[in-house]
Amino acid sequence: MIGSRKSKKRRKRQRFFTMITTFFIILLIFTAGYSLFVYRSFQKTLDTVHEPLEDREISEKRTSQPVLEKKHPFSVLLLGVDERKNDKGRSDTIIVLAVNPDRNSVEMISIPRDTKTEMVGKGKEDKINHAYAFGGINMALQSVENLLDIPIDYYIKVNMEGFQDIVDAVGGIQVDNQLDFVYEGTHFKKGSLTLNGQDALKYSRMRKLDPRGDFGRQERQRKVIQGVIKKGASLSSLWKYQEIFYALGENVRTNLTFNEMKDIQKRYKDAAHNITQIEVKGTSQKMNGIYYFIVADDEKKRIRKLLRTQLDLENLAELREMDTSSHSFYGINLNEYSFQTR
C-alpha cells in the first residue's frame, strides 16, 4: 500500500512536471515565432527607410569604404530635420558620431545650426542648417565633411515634425529636465518628466528661453532621442512594435542597410558605453542683419584633429605619404587596414 501511494505521488509529480515543461516549451515556441515575426517586420521597415545617397558610393575623402566586418572605424551624420507641410525644412539638429571599436569609444559633436560655413555645391557661405534646404542630404553631408575635414560614411535623417509619432508609438518617454520653462503653453518643470509626443516635440524645439541657446536645445534633443531608444528597447514596447515600425518608416531615412545595422550592433556595441562629447567653441556675430556662429580656424583645427584621430585617418595619411603611387608600405596594402593612434 505504501509503495502504491508513493508510486501515485511520483506519477502525479511527473504529470505536473510534464505539464509545466510542455507549457514552457509552447511558450518558448510562441515567443520564438513572435520574435521571428517581429524580426521580419523590422527588416521590412528598414527596407522602407533605406535611402542610398544619389551619385555617391563612398566619400571623396576615402579611398575605400570602411568594412564593418573587420571593425573599421566609421562616422555617422544624424540630422533632425524640421520638415513641415509644403516646406522642405532645415536640419536644426546636426550631430556627427565617430566610432572606433578598438578604442571602444564614440566621439560625438553637435554642430550649432547657425555655424557659418561653405555650402558645398552652391559656391557661397551660409548657416550650416541651410545646406539641407538648398541641396538635401547630399549638400548637407558634403558641407559637414568640408567643415570637419572627415569622411561621412552614413547618415540617419529624422523628421522632427513626425518625431512625436515615434514618441507616442513607444508610449511616451522620460527625461531628466534641468531647466524650468514654459513653451507654447506647456510648463516643463525641473526634474524627471514624462512626455508624450507633442510635449517631447515642444521640449526639443525650445531655444530662445534657454541661457545656453542652441547648445541647450541640442542637449534636450539628445535626451529625447535617448529616451526613445531606451523605451523602444524595453520589453513593454514589444507588443507595440507595429506602431513603432510604422512611425519609423514614415519619419526616418538612412543609407545604412539591414545587414550593416546588424554588423554595427554585433561588433560595435561596446563603444556605445563610452561616448565623449566634443564642444564647438565660437562666437555669435551679426552680419548684414543676420546672426552667425563663427568658429575660428584654430578651433576648427582642434576639432578636426580629434575626429581624424578617432577615425584613424591621421596615421593612415602619414603612412600613405611614404608611397602615394602604390598605396603600400613594406608590402602592406594600406587600403585594407585601419591604424590606431594611441
Rank of each mutant, 00 (worst) to 15 (best):
L148K: 11
H327P: 00
Y330L: 15
E318V: 13
Q174N: 15
E314A: 06
L147T: 01
P101G: 02
Y132T: 03
N288A: 10
D263T: 02
P52A: 12
R308C: 08
L316S: 10
D210F: 14
D114M: 02
G249F: 03
F134T: 10
K189I: 03
Y291L: 05
A200D: 08
F329H: 07
E145F: 15
L28I: 08
F181L: 15
V76Y: 01
D102L: 12
Q178H: 09
K208A: 13
F30A: 15
A247I: 09
Q277D: 07
L311G: 04
Q178M: 09
K230Q: 07
R205P: 01
G289Y: 06
T45F: 00
S236T: 15
K116C: 07
K116Q: 04
G135A: 08
L313D: 09
E219C: 02
Y34A: 11
R212K: 13
S110H: 05
G123P: 04
T257I: 04
Q142I: 00
H327F: 12
R84N: 12
A32D: 00
M322A: 14
M261W: 07
L27Y: 06
H50G: 07
T18N: 06
I244V: 01
M19P: 00
L306A: 00
I290E: 13
E279Q: 10
S204Q: 07
K202M: 03
E57I: 13
L311K: 02
D82C: 08
I166E: 08
K70D: 15
N315C: 12
M119N: 05
M160E: 02
E69Q: 12
D298C: 09
T254P: 14
D214F: 09
K231A: 04
D82K: 03
T22Q: 03
K208W: 08
E184W: 02
V280C: 03
K116A: 04
F16R: 09
F134A: 10
S192D: 14
R5Y: 14
V144I: 09
D199V: 00
D92H: 08
G282T: 05
G282M: 04
Y154C: 05
M160S: 12
K44F: 09
I111Y: 01
A272Q: 00
I229R: 15
L193M: 12
A140N: 05
M119T: 07
E69C: 03
L319Q: 01
V76P: 05
E219N: 15
L313R: 02
K157G: 09
K8W: 05
